[in-house]
Nucleic acid binder design. Structure first.
Lengths: 348, 348
DNA sequence: CTGAAAGCGCTTACAG
DNA sequence: CTGAAAGCGCTTACAG
């Protein structure tokens, strides 16, 4: 086992050192440095001396010690969806994270990114989560086969889930997937399309499953027959979207519109169309879901559903913090998406 | 001040509780739970009893207490470039973060995202950074006017900087901006262009400044005259890139190629071209820098310089961890970019 | 106005 | 093989 400190590295000034420097007890030093008990507690001269000593010694309170005493840390853990690697990639997660940060910033919380991934060793993950280092945790888009979620539900760690399966978790904050997809289908249908395909997302993700289910329901509500050869599933990324679209394009009879479960796969579908020399939307209309920033930059710009990610992430974070600080019960909430009409969809 | 624990929330089992449950000292319990001192230390029956008790009580070691003792936490802080808001947005930072995570994951470190932004209250930031909660810190793309960096340099917290100004920081890991830009200019020139414009990035960012300087140098090396009206500065985002391009397009005499200091602004330039009805690359070639994933999705796909962000971030993180654990000195490193030829650039 | 003491939860020599 | 004790750095009643 290595040394606790390297020899020439003088350790950070401690409360005891500043107290000694002034010749007061560490208790007094602590009181003045924390500004507790209004002014009358400590004489002006002592106070000034302590502050001065702290300054010259470069004293910073040790947060570990402070938190150990206080029983809270003002840090929130974030558990990103587990994929084998590159867990932070994908514009959706990025925006979720950004929304979380926007909110923690105003509350003075820091964020701890859990990097060990969900699937590998749930127990290690729990050690990290439950080791007192975080006051609560935000789980983002857990997979349905997550081993972490059931374990975490038995613990009393305050928790909130963004994009989770209601059958699997409580305290869920997410877009109203069903209403949004229905909205999308109705829009496509209103353009005159009845030959509609769907590129679904990975089915171990709740959002992907419910979007697909809603697609089915929407089609049946509108009395449009489903064509399984126009139904493909991808992985929510560009490449798999392109592959899925290519599979659809292999058919002799082609759909006139394809609804993709997220924007990334829609980008892939656009790629597939371009490389086959097909025009969007003249040959086939393509629609996405999420409205990530680049959605307006593709050619043609993508018609999609705006996913209020920032709002959702902030609401989830705020609810978690309110629960931690005041015990305010957390209630699941659903958010409205909205149609963003651009030019990747057109009249039949 | 609120209660430390809400009434009905029974606190997590403590080492003392498991020791009591078995009827041994907490020292013994600690030893078996940490597997220290090989097997001979504790009798098999005691060991089994402790483990069983820990299991049924749901014991998890408190990391705060452990770290307080150990003097390290196995967490690294990340300080993202300070912008007023949405600090996590931008594909570049996202990739840096992802690269960092990829590396911390293999070393078993967690990440603490510092959300208070650099500019606001440097002292608060220092409290968070120096409070013993992190073993080291990774600063990403600090602004030149950062008040944090000079303060941090005086502290002994292990630190590494990704995309920093060599005049301002040590331990820098970044792409060889100069060589990469020179490479880009030479490439554009080899296509026959001599009327070359540049959309530079925000000049309080070192990467943007040095790219602009390198652009100047490259032009002069090739004996191409600079035309200031073809030189605009943006903010490294799409909108400002579009605006910058529009300013360039206002001239009567137009360049035949424009080199943008990052991909985002190149996307904006592409937008500007499209909305003016101009063709890329027939009317003007556009080149970017970074090769973010969507760069291959624009129309036309963007010619750019591949920025090995993942490699850089991982190297920086690994160096930091090596220093923390073994005292291995950190040395600044520079990484090679490479030309990615796509179709937004063409022969004159 | 100030300090001695206990405690947050753990680990690690050091005795026995 | 096992435990009493000190200590990590802080805060907070409680006395004086």
């Amino acid at each position: 086992m290595r040394e606790k400190r390297r020899p020439n590295e003088k350790s950070r000034a401690t409360l005891k050192e500043v107290a000694n420097a002034v010749g007061v007890s560490i208790c007094t030093a602590s009181v003045v440095l924390n500004n507790s008990h209004s002014g009358s507690r400590v004489s002006e001269s002592t106070r000034a001396a302590v502050i001065e000593a702290a300054r010259t010694l470069g004293y910073r309170a040790n947060q570990l010690a402070r938190s150990l005493h206080a029983g809270h840390t003002h840090v929130l853990g974030v558990v990103p969806a587990a994929t084998d690697t590159n867990i932070l990639l994908g514009p959706h997660l990025q925006h979720v994270l950004n929304g979380i940060v926007n909110e923690t910033e105003v509350h003075g919380y820091d964020l701890s990114l859990i990097t060990r991934c969900d699937q590998s060793k749930p127990s290690d993950l729990l050690d990290a989560l439950l080791g007192g280092r975080m006051d609560g945790v935000i789980v983002v888009a857990p997979r349905s086969n997550s081993r972490l979620i059931p374990l975490l539900r038995n613990e009393k760690l305050p928790m909130v889930v963004i994009d989770g399966d209601p059958d699997q978790c409580d305290n869920i904050f997410e877009i109203d997937n069903e209403a949004s997809v229905l909205n999308a289908i109705r829009y496509i249908h209103s353009l005159g399309h009845t030959k509609i395909g769907h590129i679904a997302g990975p089915q171990d993700l709740y959002a992907a499953r419910i979007r697909k289910d809603a697609f089915f329901r929407g089609m049946s509500m509108l009395g449009i027959p489903l064509r399984t050869e126009w139904l493909q599933v991808g992985l929510f990324d560009v490449v798999s979207g392109e592959e899925a679209m290519n599979r659809i394009l292999k058919n002799d009879d082609l759909p006139t519109a394809v609804f993709c479960a997220n924007d990334e796969m829609a980008f892939g579908a656009l790629n597939a169309m371009h490389s086959k020399g097909l025009r969007v939307p003249e040959d086939i209309s393509i629609m996405g879901f999420d409205d990530v920033p680049v959605a307006s930059l593709t050619s043609p710009p993508l018609t999609t559903i705006k996913h209020p990610v920032d709002e959702i992430a902030r609401a989830a974070t705020a609810a978690l913090i309110n629960y931690i600080e005041d015990g305010t019960p957390i209630t699941s909430r659903t958010f409205l998406g909205s149609l963003v009409e651009r030019s990747s969809t057109g009249n039949l």
